[in-house]
Structures are given as structure tokens and as C-alpha cells.
Nucleic acid binder design. Structure first.
Length: 737
DNA sequence: AGCACGCCGACT
DNA sequence: GTCGGCGTGCTC
């Protein structure tokens, strides 16, 4: 037998190119040491070295042999993920038509992208030695310390690190040495884990509905079953999640729980800790690079039982996946809106498929996609309709703003209601999805509006910081003292943001404690937790907030919810706007009357007779959703068809359109099978100085759309104009912005 | 993307 | 004379 020539390694690199690069392995490096999923250091282009990931091996290459370079070194001893996870990443790359190299790197923790070792630091762990026979040496009655230490160790079957021992047992080394000599314990080196095993004490009895939901899920844990847990706010979905997670963990498997935003993690951490005896890790953007790496590795090694995280956590490899849970599955933040535009909810479903374990999608306001999948029998819907503690659903009051003074953002009935709630020492939540002081600054004399020069849109005035800020590109400017056009110094603040509403409230209710909760006031780490504490302690009287406040939080003392402006979403260019509006109104309303006190929701609108609004308020979210689904069906919009959006932007005004026109011609042979609309300007036509256009592709056949995209993206990449502008493909777009 | 090569304008 | 502007092309 002749010795095989050293294999050619196919390496994916973090570059926006839809292809891999071939490298020669070291002669002295047996093939088994180079498996797909391992990182390697390679020379690339003009840069001396670059981290890449091996995606395959071959004995041949399309590139001339003399052009092939040799890899510099192998970073990993073992692949970063198992073949199934790698397969999932490959599939995702094809589905979203996103280059595999960039995709692989974007799903890794930053530390691993930068070539850090994928190893947990090791620590010495002491654990009880399993006796060969049933005879275990006895501890003398007098040796109280040894017995106490032994008892402690028995509670921690996985072992205790020396650090944990020190903090739990003073002067443990002496007694430990004695136990070691008796052959009762042993020490070993094992990866350091921060996923400490906690000792949950609180037991909760599920109510009948919750128990039923749990039973349904439990009866089908060994297949990739998809459950839609459809439960109104306050129905106790979290209890069901916790029960399922506990069940999964007891079977020695891992549970992944995704939440839509980072602000919800502290609450879930607390709930999991008090209920489940499990090793928990958290993954979200608030962690440092090394913390993220640690959590990622612990999930992969199986040192963590529960993985809690936001969108990007969905990419964490698991050793023994048992279940995937997506809380508030309808939430738009599961969709990444830049670079790699994936949906974490859809990836969770895909992962359940690959792992052959169930996925639970939970929501009080399920997305139309999910409801449609229930209709198609792809998801099993489990309804939880009752509120725990017999809390009742709130009363809705629609306030017609047309009959009121335009200058007053808060209507008289709302003010009276707030006053009453203050007297009762309860809390009010006012919802306004617009931060800042006022969204428009206009000259009283000539009508000049202060706009962002890079986006052509009005700048939002922030009073506290005395800045005009563009909410689209972030640019800032000091407000001008006078109109630059007519030089008159009478500038009007038009409209209200959370900052200004807070000011109005402080005027009306000087004795009340008012908290403003939006991205501006929660920027600092821990500030959201601080707010939550102040609300729960009863210190706060009135909360003014953006959608941050609408998501998931449980504030038992809120009895009044005011929606200051329900009109955005009734008339919008985006076909999903009405779905979003209904979800937001329902979610915010769900914050009212969660405990014993009945709640009231007051909705201010200029369109009290709008059919969408009346359907939502006179019936419920589900009736509304049915209506929307009918509408979508009649005009063939998702979920009854599939979309892909090609976006193009450039500082040159004409280039994006030219590019998109060329893109259309490349599709010509398939135009009969696809519906193509555009190119048309993006809803925000100019942003950060770039002109933005898009092209919409639609088909009622997903495969056909996918097939067209495959060749198209390849052609686009090789288009000369494609290198001059920035373009991206958004498969299953969620927002048209 | 990231980097170098390359060919035209205002500076010590 | 040169420093540097960013267009163009390539990366195994």
C-alpha cells in the first residue's frame, strides 16, 4: 500500500464569499487530527494569518497545486461542535444564503473567533468514591467533622471544587485527608464550571390547566414535536416551562430557554433557581467575552443543565439536548436585523428537528405564522385560558382623541383614572413607544423642520441631555436657538415622547413617584433590575415606558394601563404593522390587574371606529388574528406565501436602483414562477447618508423561491456593481425598514 | 472583509 | 519632487 498524499483541507474563513479555500495539511498530521469543525490558523491573502474552520477534506482541489498554502497550525484538539450541529449550520447557511464562513464565525463566541482555546480551565474537585462492593468503611462516631463533611459531599454527587469547599466548610482539608485515607472520597481534575448546582426548595402545585399542558408535553418528549403554548398573560406559562425543564433535567438532559430581551433574564434566573435543582448558565450580550465563552463551553460539555439566553444563545451547542423553549415567540427581536438575518425562533425549531426533541413556542399573542402552522397540523396548540389567582381580565376603554384638545397628550378621563389609582395606592403604567422629549422641532413662522442631514428625517429632541438626536443613525447636534431659514427664535416642540410625558405627569401629580423606563434610562448595567425592584417595592406610582416595559414583566400592583397613542400601526406601509400593534396592545394590557385587583386599560386613539381596533377590543387577540389571517390569505401574503427581500444601499443615489435592475434581469428565466416587485425605495429611504432600495421576491412555493435564490446570490456576488454598493438578502423578512 | 497596488491632486 | 486620496482586484 502506498502512503496517501496529505489531504487537502477545505477551510471556511470569515469573509463574505460563498466558497471555501483549500489548504495543505502538515505531512506529519494524521487525518484523524483534522476533522470538520476544528479551527486552524492559515495564511490568507496579504494578511499573515487568519483563523479558519475546517469544513471538509479532499484529495483533490480545483486550485492549482502550486498555489495551495500550508496551514500554520491547528487550534483545536477536537471539533468545536458535533457533526449534527455542523450539519445544522450548513443547512442554515443554504437556507439564508449567507456565506458559511461568516455564518460559522458569527455563531461562535467572540473569544473563539479570536482564536482563544476552547477549554474550560480545570479545577480540583472532590467527590464521594463509589465503593466497589456495598461495603463502605464506617466513620467513627467521634469524628464529627468527618461525618459533617461527608454529609455535605453526599448532597453534591457531581463533586465540589476546592473553592466551593472552602466557602461551605471551614478547614475542610484535615477531615478530607482523613476521609481520603479511609477510601471514602477521591479527588480529580475537571473543567471549572460556574454553573453551580443550587438547591431549589420551592415546590409549586400546578393548577388543572397547567397540569394538563404539562401532561400533554410530557407524553411526547422523544420526538421533534412542536407545541404552541397559547396562554393569555397571567395564565402561568412560566410555571409550565419550569415544570417541563425540571422534568427534562431530571432525565439528565439539557433545556434551552430563549427570551426576547436581556431585561427578562434576571426574572427567569430567579425563577429557575428557586424551583429547579439544576446547573444554569446564561448567554446574552451583557456578558464579557470570557463569561460568554465559559457559558458556551459549559453548555457544550454538558456541565450546564439549563441554558437561558437571548437570540444568539440559540447557536450554543448542547451535549444532550432535551427541549427547546421560545418564550414570547411572536416577538420581533428574535429576528436579527443586520448582517446574518436569521430568526432564532425558527432556528430553535430546526434544532428540535435535528435533535429529535420537542420545541415549545409560548405566547399570549402567537404570531400569525405559528397560528397558521397550527391550522396545518404542524404545531400542536395547547391553550391555557385561565389567569392564575383568579385574576380577571381588564376592562377596555377607548378614548376618542378627536374631540379633545390636540395640545394635550393625556385625555381628561385618563388623568382622572390615574388620580384614582394614586388614591388607592396602586400603580399606573403608561405606554408610549417613542423615547425622547419630542419627535419634531418646527419653526412657528416658516415651517422649517429640524431634520437629520444623513437620513432626511426629523431629529428627536432630548431635553435632559439638551440634544437633537436622530433615532435612525444616532447622530447628535445641539438644538439651534433660532430657525436657520427665517432666523426667528420661535421653535415649536411638536409631539410627545416618554421624556415629555413624564414632565407633564410631574406637573399634574407633583407628589407621585414617576419612573421613566426606556432605552435612555436603562442603558447602564443593572438599571433595569433597579427599576423592577422599585416597582415591586411599591415605591413607584406611575411608570412611563416604551415596549421594554410591555414585555413579560410581572408587576402585581398595576391596575391601570394607559396606551397614549394606539394609532401607529393602523395605517402603515408594512403589512405586519397591524399584527404588531395588536400584539403590543394585548401585551401591555396584560400588565394590568394581574393579582387580585381588576385592571383597566385606556386606549387613546384618533380612530375609535377603525375595524382592526374594534375587533381587537370587542373580541380578543385571537379573533383579531383570524381576521388578519383571512386578509393575508386573500392577498397571498405570508404565511400563505414566502418572501425574500434584496436590499441595496449606497452613498451614490442611483447605484442601488441600477444594481437591483440588473438583479431583476438575472432572474429573467424565472420570472414566471416568482412574483417580483420593485425596485422601490426602503420605507426609510435614506439612512446614515446612504440611499436604500429594495426588491421583493415572493412565491407560494418555498422550494421554488429557494431554488431561484441559490443561483441568483451567486450571480450577484460576481456582479461588478455588487462590489461597489452594499447589498444583503433577507429570507423571511420581518420588517421592511 | 482586508489589504496592497496604482494612478492622479496639493503640500513641505 | 512626495504624501495620500480611494478605485480595483485578489485571497486557496
Amino acid at each position: 500500500m502506498t502512503r496517501r498524499s496529505s489531504p487537502i483541507l477545505q477551510v471556511a474563513l470569515p469573509v463574505p464569499l460563498r466558497r471555501h479555500f483549500d489548504y495543505l495539511a502538515h505531512e506529519d498530521m494524521p487525518e484523524k487530527f483534522l476533522q470538520p469543525g476544528m479551527r486552524v490558523l492559515v495564511p490568507f491573502g496579504k494578511s499573515t494569518q487568519q483563523t479558519g474552520i475546517v469544513i471538509g477534506a479532499s484529495s483533490t482541489s480545483n486550485v492549482a497545486m502550486h498555489k495551495l498554502k500550508r496551514i500554520i497550525k491547528v487550534i483545536d484538539h477536537q471539533p468545536l461542535f458535533d457533526p449534527a450541529h455542523f450539519e445544522l449550520l450548513r443547512w442554515t447557511s443554504e437556507y439564508y444564503h449567507y456565506p458559511l464562513g461568516e455564518l460559522l464565525f458569527s455563531t461562535l463566541p467572540v473569544a473563539l473567533r479570536n482564536g482563544k482555546a476552547a477549554e474550560l480551565p480545570s479545577v480540583v474537585v472532590w467527590k464521594i468514591r463509589v465503593p466497589l462492593n456495598d461495603q463502605r468503611p464506617a466513620i467513627p462516631v467521634r469524628a464529627r467533622k468527618q461525618q459533617a463533611l461527608f454529609d455535605l459531599m453526599q448532597l453534591n454527587a457531581c463533586g465540589l471544587s476546592e473553592q466551593e469547599l472552602t466557602s461551605n466548610f471551614a478547614n475542610w482539608r484535615g477531615p478530607m485527608q482523613a476521609l481520603l485515607e479511609r477510601g471514602l472520597v477521591e479527588s480529580q481534575s475537571r473543567p471549572a464550571s460556574t454553573a453551580a448546582n443550587n438547591h431549589a426548595a420551592i415546590k409549586v402545585t400546578l393548577n388543572e390547566e397547567q397540569q394538563h399542558a404539562f401532561d400533554v408535553i410530557r407524553s411526547d418528549l422523544s420526538s421533534a414535536k412542536r407545541f404552541l403554548l397559547d396562554g393569555i398573560t397571567g395564565s402561568g406559562k412560566t410555571e409550565i416551562y419550569l415544570e417541563v425543564i425540571n422534568h427534562i433535567v431530571r432525565q439528565g438532559k439539557q433545556a434551552m430557554l430563549l427570551v426576547p430581551e436581556i431585561g427578562l433574564t434576571p426574572h427567569f434566573i430567579a425563577r429557575i433557581r428557586e424551583r429547579i435543582n439544576a446547573r444554569l448558565v446564561v448567554l446574552h450580550s451583557g456578558l464579557s467575552d470570557s463569561e460568554r465563552l465559559q457559558s458556551w463551553l459549559e453548555a457544550r460539555e454538558g456541565c450546564a443543565d439549563v441554558i437561558l439566553g437571548t437570540r444568539s444563545a440559540v447557536w450554543t451547542p448542547l451535549k444532550a439536548p432535551g427541549i427547546f423553549i421560545v418564550d414570547e415567540e411572536h416577538d420581533p427581536s428574535y429576528k436579527q436585523q443586520e448582517s446574518f438575518r436569521y430568526s432564532a425562533r425558527d432556528i430553535a425549531i430546526l434544532r428540535s428537528n435535528y435533535a429529535n426533541v420537542p420545541v415549545i413556542l409560548g405566547s399570549a399573542t402567537p404570531s400569525l405564522e405559528s397560528l397558521h402552522n397550527v391550522d396545518l397540523d404542524k404545531y400542536k396548540r395547547i391553550v391555557v385560558s385561565g389567569r392564575v389567582d383568579n385574576a380577571v381580565l381588564p376592562d377596555y376603554h377607548v378614548i376618542d382623541m378627536r374631540t379633545r384638545k390636540a395640545s394635550n397628550p393625556l385625555s381628561e378621563p385618563l388623568i382622572i383614572a390615574i388620580r384614582k389609582v394614586l388614591e388607592q395606592k396602586k400603580q399606573t403604567l403608561l405606554f408610549l413607544n417613542r423615547r425622547g422629549y419630542s419627535p419634531v422641532l418646527m419653526c412657528h413662522h416658516c415651517g422649517w423642520v429640524n431634520t437629520c442631514s444623513r437620513c432626511n428625517l426629523p431629529l428627536t429632541y432630548h431635553k435632559q441631555r439638551n440634544l437633537q438626536i436622530c433615532h435612525h443613525c444616532g447622530s447628535q447636534a445641539r438644538p439651534a436657538p433660532a430657525c436657520p431659514e427665517c432666523h426667528k427664535a420661535e421653535l415649536l416642540q411638536i409631539g410627545y415622547g416618554t421624556e415629555r410625558i413624564t414632565e407633564v405627569l410631574a406637573d399634574l401629580f407633583p407628589a407621585a413617584t414617576i419612573l421613566r423606563i426606556d432605552r435612555d434610562t436603562t442603558r447602564r448595567k443593572g438599571s433595569m433590575e433597579n427599576f423592577v425592584d422599585r416597582i415591586n417595592s411599591g415605591e413607584a406610582d406611575i411608570l412611563v415606558g416604551t415596549q421594554m416595559l410591555a414585555k413579560g414583566h410581572h408587576f402585581p400592583d398595576i391596575t391601570l394601563v394607559g396606551i397614549i397613542d394606539a394609532d401607529r400601526g393602523l395605517y402603515s406601509a408594512d403589512f405586519r404593522a397591524s399584527e404588531r400593534m395588536a400584539q403590543l396592545i394585548t401585551q401591555v394590557s396584560g400588565r394590568a390587574g394581574r393579582a387580585k385587583d381588576p385592571g383597566m386599560v385606556m386606549i387613546q386613539t384618533h380612530f375609535p371606529a377603525h375595524p382592526l381596533l374594534t375587533t381587537l377590543l370587542q373580541h380578543d387577540y385571537h379573533t383579531f388574528a383570524r381576521l388578519l389571517l383571512q386578509e393575508r390569505k386573500s392577498v397571498n401574503l405570508p404565511p400563505y406565501s414566502y418572501m425574500a427581500l434584496l436590499r441595496a444601499e449606497s452613498f451614490e443615489q442611483n447605484m442601488p436602483v441600477t444594481f437591483l435592475h440588473t438583479a431583476v434581469t438575472l432572474l429573467n428565466n424565472q420570472t414566471t414562477e416568482l412574483e417580483i416587485s420593485g425596485p422601490f425605495p426602503a420605507p426609510i429611504e435614506k439612512r446614515s447618508g446612504k440611499y436604500r432600495f429594495q426588491l421583493l421576491l415572493q412565491s407560494d412555493n418555498r422550494m421554488r423561491l429557494q431554488k431561484a435564490l441559490l443561483a441568483w446570490v451567486y450571480d450577484l456576488e460576481h456582479l461588478p456593481l455588487g462590489k461597489k454598493i452594499r447589498w444583503s438578502l433577507d429570507v423571511d423578512p420581518q420588517e421592511m425598514l
